[in-house]
Amino acid sequence: MSDVILEVRNLVKYFPVKAGILQRTIATVKAVDGVSFQIKRGETFGLVGESGCGKTTTGRCILRLEEPTSGEIIFKGIEITKLNQKQLKKLRPKMQIVFQDPFSSLNPRLPVKEIVGEAMVYHGLVKGKEAEKKVKELLEMVGLSAEHMYRYPHEFSGGQRQRICIARALSTQPDLIVCDEAVSALDVSIQSQILKLLENLQAKLGVAYLFISHALNVVKYISHRIGVMYLGKIVEVAESEELYLNPLHPYTKALISAVPVPDPKVKRQKIILKGDVPSPLNPPKGCRFVTRCPQAMSICAEIEPQMLEVSSNHSVACHLFQKQL
């Protein structure tokens, strides 16, 4: 059996922009435009980039919360974009998500017992008293206690609410969890606790994560491999430590230069990018990064660079490296 649990091939998601009384399509937002990557069993794949680059849309398409425009999403050997709702329902327990805001993603009218146990009962994984016992186990697994079962979301802190969200995601025994900015709404001290919890759960249960974030230092801490995304495309993929020590794409270099260094004696040269991120309504021809790249060449404005493996487990889409080869 292959150790690849998820393979995304040339994923595309366009959103139509409609206007007028007849709601005609006048433009298209190219949110995700040809994204490809793999996630292995028990691996954390980090997806990092600026706000609006298409990270969250990629995660939602993988779970079929958004319908992809085109491309293939292969989960455990099954091409899920071709499944109907009945077929997809059978697969859903194995693919879960932890949302960014732990408050708005919890039903304020339900106690924790029902929030965590609802999916298990719906999918027929437990019955009757089993559900209560399982909810207790899950709460203890994420650092809460059985007495929290009868409380409501507003009675918890942000970190505790996110633990409830993680317990709910784990309730169906998933093989893959999409963590969509799962710690960005939390205090820094609480972030580290939640990241450590996710690591421990992965070691214990063997679950794989797609970890989506705009914070490269957070992604570096938890991820085995990282994909850097810019304006709907992945521009670089490498193992976590390799990407941090040896960034190749000019955009990756700029991102890493902005990460604070904990040692006050160490000075890092910040790369200040000119201009703003172009609109996904009308992305630049050729390389998407050409309008802001300090090393842009004439070919960059004409021809889109293809993803190229420049060393073992390190790929980049940049003409600087394609020119050398």
Rank of each mutant, 00 (worst) to 15 (best):
D3K: 13
D3M: 13
V4Y: 01
I5A: 07
L6K: 01
Y14R: 12
I21V: 15
T25C: 02
A27S: 15
V29H: 02
V35Y: 00
K40R: 15
K40I: 02
G46D: 01
G49I: 04
G52Y: 15
G54P: 10
G59R: 07
R64P: 09
T69V: 04
S70W: 02
G71Y: 00
I73Y: 02
K76T: 01
I80D: 03
I80L: 00
K89L: 10
K94R: 14
I97P: 11
F99G: 06
F103R: 13
S104H: 12
S105H: 04
L106D: 13
P108K: 01
L110D: 01
P111E: 00
I115H: 03
I115P: 03
M120Q: 14
K129E: 15
A131I: 11
A131M: 15
E137Y: 07
S145E: 13
S145M: 04
A146C: 06
H148V: 05
R151E: 08
E155W: 00
F156A: 09
Q162Y: 12
A167N: 08
T172V: 13
Q173I: 02
V178C: 08
L186P: 06
L195I: 15
K196E: 12
F211C: 11
I212V: 15
S213R: 09
L216A: 00
S223E: 04
L231C: 04
G232K: 02
S240K: 02
H249R: 06
H249Y: 10
T252C: 04
T252K: 13
L255A: 05
V259Q: 07
P264C: 10
L273A: 09
L281I: 06
P284S: 09
C287H: 05
S298I: 07
M307F: 06
L308S: 11
E309V: 06
S311G: 14
S312F: 14
H314C: 13
C318D: 01
K323S: 13
